[in-house]
Amino acid sequence: MMKLWRMFETLVTMVMMAAVIGASPAVAQANLEINTPGVAALQASMQKRHGELAPLYASGAVGLTRDGNVALRDPAAVPLAQRATANGLVAAENQDRAALYREIARANNHPEWEGDIRNTFAQRWIDRAQSGWYYQSAAGAWVRK
């Protein structure tokens, strides 16, 4: 019985040491995994939609929000006949964006990172937006880039 316990101890100790030694460097230099079919599908869907969204960004009808979404900020800039389409594009884009942030967090085995990933994206969408596009400042006001 004693022997068994000792063997168990040794084994667990070894495994744990290995885990501690092995895990640290792997986590420290972590690269986010984004090459998954889920990310690819969402990326393709958003890329396809961008052709329709780009003129709306340029006209200021749609802007980038501070929480990593897009919003119809000036519907008057869209003719009535296209307003439903614009509204639909915004809804679909936000759905894809939410799924993208969730999917990246899930693909990296850290579902709890979803919020951080969303925040990171929110900043990067705005940083990389073309000049003339509108984005929401940290205080929530619309700013033309």
Binding site: L32, I34, L100, D116, I117, T120, F121, W125
Partner: peptide, 8 residues
């Protein structure tokens, strides 16, 4: 995460 965001 920023690098990943930029790639996407």
């Amino acid at each position: 995460a920023e690098k990943a965001a930029d790639r996407i």
